[in-house]
Design a protein around this nucleic acid. Structure first.
Lengths: 194, 194
DNA sequence: CCAAAAATGGACCGTAAGGTCCACAAAGGG
DNA sequence: CCCTTTGTGGACCTTACGGTCCATTTTTGG
């Protein structure tokens, strides 16, 4: 037996506790002691469940957080079938990041675990999936004739992903969602042919 | 006299040495010893010229690097007066960031100095100036009738800035400029009304 | 019920890294 | 030419933090 019920629970508690900490006010640099304190665990437990140490733990947290990103955009992201739906999605994205404020848990994570193998993979998988959803939405609108077929759905989806990333990054340093909204609106206008 | 000629030179050498280091292969976390080694200075000199320690030094480096960002886009960025000029600018941006590769000196800097007062200010000033240049370009094209006047120049300029930021961020984790190009092209197409 | 495996607590260690101090060298300026 | 200011070298200090170890408790499975 590798992990008992209790063991799985503890492991999960560590991941979620770390995630909570990262969503807090002062992320900066997470230390194992921060995580230890917030999760009520001991050093040995962290290394017991994450033999690879801090790096492995942070990567697990990144995976956990990256799942939330797309979930928070649902159900809108999965049903971009009308202009109204696009607007709802847009608003959901803006609301989500406005609520998150200057703290981007994933961003903090990536800056701490950035170079390691696996980090790029996590972020890459997220971006790919994100882009696929948007591309899917564009293609459906093209099928119904609401978006001209001459547009490259995949490439525009990539533009959305990059635009959102950038908007969020600006948000992190400026505290305002203005750039994010401007980018989303510009790209949606472009889809509409306005 | 606060700083002699020799003093100014040393101070500058420290800043530029740090910048060189950040542009190198393994930025991750800069340490004062890294900087000391690459600039051939001693600890006391660093603290002599930057009494605020690491934070003040890194902020100075960030200011130094942030100047390079717009310079590297000149003269194109300052003369967005025709569609050909926009394309040249687009290519210059892509080329610049492709050459930079996965290393974004400013990005590394911001992740290390992010929370401190002054950091946001440096990045904010850069983004504002960048946006102003682009807005200016859009307005000139509107004046000549090549861009429809119904478009909000300032907001679209913000979209460009955010889009580039995001494209570069994706580049940092994926190593590809594809997203960056997709975003720039989408926004330029939108300006063109394509 | 008992031995083996898993979970937990926490003292302890090693080191990297920022920062301090002080002695000495080199300009500067009157 | 000498005194004051500025520049430089580098030993040293302190702390934070990742990681190790082992003793103890709890759970598991036969």
């Amino acid at each position: 037996m590798a992990l008992t019920v209790k063991g799985r629970a503890t492991r999960q508690r560590i991941i979620e506790g770390a995630a909570v900490y990262l969503r807090g006010d002062e992320p900066g640099e997470v230390t194992l002691d921060d995580i230890r304190a917030i999760t009520g665990t001991s050093k040995s437990q962290i290394f017991h469940y994450f033999p690879g140490g801090k790096e492995e733990l942070l990567l697990a947290v990144a995976r956990h957080e990256s799942e939330r990103v797309l979930e928070d955009q649902q159900p809108h992201l999965g049903a971009l079938t009308s202009w109204a739906a696009w607007e709802r999605w847009r608003d959901a994205v803006v609301a989500r990041y406005r609520a998150q404020g200057r703290n981007c848990p994933l961003g903090s994570l990536m800056s701490q675990v950035g170079g390691t193998p696996g980090a790029a993979e996590v972020i890459g998988a997220l971006l790919t999936s994100w882009r696929a959803h948007i591309r899917h939405g564009i293609e459906r609108m093209q099928a119904t004739g609401e978006i001209r077929p001459s547009l490259d759905a995949d490439r525009l989806a990539a533009a959305f992903v990059a635009g959102i990333q950038g908007g969020v990054q600006v948000l992190r340093s400026s505290g305002s969602t203005w750039h994010l909204e401007a980018t989303l609106d510009a790209l949606i206008d472009h889809l509409r042919g306005v």
